[in-house]
């Protein structure tokens, strides 16, 4: 008897508590910028592709769902000839983002990727590449790396001395 009364009380009590259910999609939840959702490829502050096709995201991926091929452009910049993420295999773990040495690959607070056809979850570079810098507005890998590219000669990177004159003989 006592147990039944207590149950009734417990249930009725909820009439006065706050509603947790969100009226999605009319009402959108707040997702922090660090939320691990849909993966994007970002651009340098100068607007060019950040990805240098180093393959680290691909090798660290526990689902093996990233494949890419490196190629070199005429201006000396390395970039992926193709970059493919199979989101039907992706577990949104974010290890690719952690591994990326150029901040190119970033996870975004977007999870609305459902598809009827699994093949539509295979994203190529044109689907992944966005027009912004994402979470890291300042960083530009090519201005830290020692390799020269068009517009950034040897010795012009951050914390670099100008190229040495090998013929100099002074002690």
């Amino acid at each position: 008897m006592w147990s039944q009364l207590r149950t009734l009380w417990e249930v009725l009590k909820h009439t006065f508590s706050r509603i947790e259910t969100v009226e999605y999609p009319d009402e959108m939840p707040y997702l922090a910028p660090r939320y691990r959702g849909r993966i994007v490829l970002t651009r340098d502050p100068d607007g060019d592709e950040r990805c240098v096709a180093c393959n680290l995201c691909s090798v660290v991926c526990p689902a093996d769902c990233i494949a890419l091929q490196k190629t070199t452009r005429e201006d000396g910049r390395l970039f992926p000839e193709f970059f493919r993420i199979n989101f039907s295999r992706c577990v949104m773990c974010g290890m690719c983002e952690e591994a990326c040495p150029t901040y190119a690959i970033q996870l975004t607070p977007d999870f609305e990727m459902a598809e009827f056809n699994r093949a539509n979850l295979v994203y190529e570079k044109e689907h992944l590449l966005i027009d912004g810098v994402g979470k890291y507005p300042e960083y530009s890998f090519w201005h830290v790396a020692g390799k020269a590219i068009e517009g950034k000669d040897k010795g012009e990177a951050i914390n670099e001395a100008p190229p040495l004159d090998v013929r100099e003989l002074l002690p």
């Binding site: 393959n55 691909s58 090798v59 991926c61 689902a63 093996d64 769902c65 990233i66 494949a67 890419l68 493919r84 993420i85 199979n86 039907s88 295999r89 699994r118 093949a119 979850l121 295979v122 190529e124």
Partner: peptide, 16 residues
């Protein structure tokens, strides 16, 4: 043992 991209390299042809 570190080969990568197993589930993505042929995904553009067939997702299976």
């Amino acid at each position: 043992h570190r080969a990568s991209g197993r589930t993505a390299r042929n995904a553009h042809i067939d997702v299976h």
